[in-house]
Design a protein around this nucleic acid. Structure first.
Lengths: 133, 133
DNA sequence: CTAAGTGCAAAATGTTTGCATACTT
DNA sequence: AAGTATGCAAACATTTTGCACTTAG
């Protein structure tokens, strides 16, 4: 029942923490960890599942597969917003004061508690807007 | 380029409109339409894709596959926001001045054009928040 | 007649599982 | 030693695609 501390688990956690991009797919992790420590994809999925269950990692179901984000127990991503481009599929992370007021506003005026970590706003990014589409 | 009006498309649309449940998977549609009119799964996926693109249908990526919801083209949903309760599943429509500033703000400061009709914010409604969960 | 849509089966993803082996505690 | 974790390959589920054929405009 207790999570053993294995080399693989540490590598995955390490990767999640130090990734420059906030959201990472299982394949991303696999691609990187196959070089150095060699961690099987199955292990990655199994560990990610545990981490999600433990609240260490958050899972997002996106179009072409799921992405994972390290949140380290404490919140982290509750503070910002996600914009997903319907054109190129990019997931954009946004931190912004104006947007930070959104949650409190909705809670106060509409009685609804928004969970930013699960909310994705869809639309078109600048490049896709300018490139036709 | 123009969407042809085929028997299959009509059947799928009909099913989406009359479904008692708001969210339906491609498999759900297939299971039902195989009985009567016989519509191939591939066609269902291809039609759903078009409908999503046309704004007739909204797509949600869930854990075990995607679900689709008919939202009708005629609605003025571009004007307001959608809050979906993770507890009871209710979809709440919200009209509000503060929220109306959100789109312009994101466009101006983040270069991203939000499509309100496709964007759903997830969280908990008042009742679900108070009732535990 | 031409463009678009359809069904089927095959293929491409993304994720999970069975099992023998290896590692943690 | 007992309980977990791992790797691999096979199994799965869902969605996409190639192709010959049908249908709508």
């Amino acid at each position: 029942m207790a999570d053993y501390k294995t080399k693989q688990r540490e590598l995955i956690l390490e990767y999640l923490k130090n990734s420059d991009r906030p959201h990472v797919s299982a394949a991303d992790i696999g691609a990187r960890l196959r070089e150095e420590g060699s961690v099987g994809l199955a292990t990655i999925y199994r560990q990610l599942e545990k981490m999600v269950e433990a609240g260490l990692v958050r899972k997002y179901n996106l179009d072409g597969g799921a992405c994972y984000q390290y949140v380290g127990g404490g919140e982290d991503c509750h503070e910002h917003f996600h914009l997903k481009c319907l054109g190129c599929g990019t997931l954009i992370h946004v931190d912004c004061d104006f947007l930070s007021e959104l949650g409190p506003h909705i809670l106060e005026h509409h009685g609804f508690l928004v969970d930013n970590s699960r909310t994705v706003m869809y639309g078109l990014c600048k490049r896709c807007r300018e490139g036709g589409q």
